[in-house]
Design a protein around this nucleic acid. Structure first.
Length: 273
DNA sequence: GCGACAG
DNA sequence: ATCTTGTCGC
């Protein structure tokens, strides 16, 4: 049990090391720089479609999940595209290795979009989780960005306590100092590098979200984009992906319980022998 | 034994 | 992530 989780974590670790060797140059090139035209102006003119991805899980079922991808119009935040798909999760959840658990299904969802509605391809993706705010400087938002080539932003609902970051008294004070929606403070590593920003994304919510660079985008653009996508605390693309994947699971469970039980082979008679 | 722990 | 209704407050 614990052995299984440990061995899978080891495999993930080895995979990550190999991956890092191969992608080192790519990382250095495009992770935290603006690369798109729409990023160069304050109102993001030219940005029309923002994507959001998320996975929802079933309680007590460690293999079944629903992967969802939505695309919203910008700046109106209306849903243009939705894709929910039941998937069989392989990797366990290990903090630091989230990408190895969720990314494959998100890539598949984006490939389906590319095939069905290429015109609705998002110009940027908001990802549930962190970007460079990560033990290895390479969270799920970076991972997904490199695999898809899309600009990505990591939006975490909880602080990943890494590299000197901690949810301690100082951090809580800094949160209290976030008075208005849009207020931020930087998340600094021990060495002084900015790993991300805590953002008060919604005036009525005290709890911030943690924004970090995923791919092909600066932190400043990332924070401004996330803020401009918020109707509530969680930015609308991720929120819609979350809502829709949960609803999809609800209907899925409904359908399963209503459908006739899978037929058993006539094993009763066989077992007598 | 206690704390940490993106989703 | 998930278990979970109503409820208190702006």
């Amino acid at each position: 049990m614990a052995d299984r989780a440990e061995s899978e974590a080891r495999v993930a670790e080895e995979t990550l090391r190999a991956w890092e060797r191969d992608q080192a140059q790519l990382k250095a090139d495009v992770i935290d720089q603006d690369t798109q035209e729409w990023q160069s102006n304050p109102s993001f003119a030219g940005l029309e479609r923002v994507g959001g991805v998320d996975l929802s899980y079933i309680k007590g079922d460690d293999t079944s999940a629903c992967a969802s991808l939505v695309v919203l119009s910008y700046p109106d935040l209306e849903v243009l595209y939705e894709d929910c798909c039941m998937v069989a999760v392989n990797a366990p959840y290990v903090a630091g290795f989230l990408a190895f658990r969720e990314v494959p299904f998100l890539v598949e969802a984006l490939q389906r979009l590319e095939q069905k509605e290429p015109g609705l391809r998002p110009q940027v993706l908001l990802v549930d989780g962190n970007g460079i705010l990560h033990h290895r400087g390479f969270g799920i938002a970076c991972h997904l960005g490199v695999l898809t080539g899309l600009p990505c932003v990591g939006v975490a609902k909880n602080l990943l306590q890494v590299d000197g970051l901690a949810n301690d008294e100082l951090h809580k004070e800094q949160i209290q100092d976030l008075q208005a929606g849009g207020d931020t403070f930087p998340l600094l590593s021990t060495s002084g590098k900015i790993l991300g920003m805590a953002l008060r994304s919604y005036a009525k919510s005290t709890k911030p979200v943690y924004v970090s660079v995923g791919h092909k985008m600066s932190l400043l653009s990332a924070v401004q984009l996330v803020h401009s996508c918020c109707r509530y605390r969680v930015p609308e693309p991720i929120r819609q992906a979350d809502i829709r994947s949960r609803e999809y699971i609800r209907k899925h469970l409904e359908a399963v319980s209503a459908s006739p039980q899978p037929e058993r082979m006539s094993e009763d008679a066989d077992s007598e022998h």
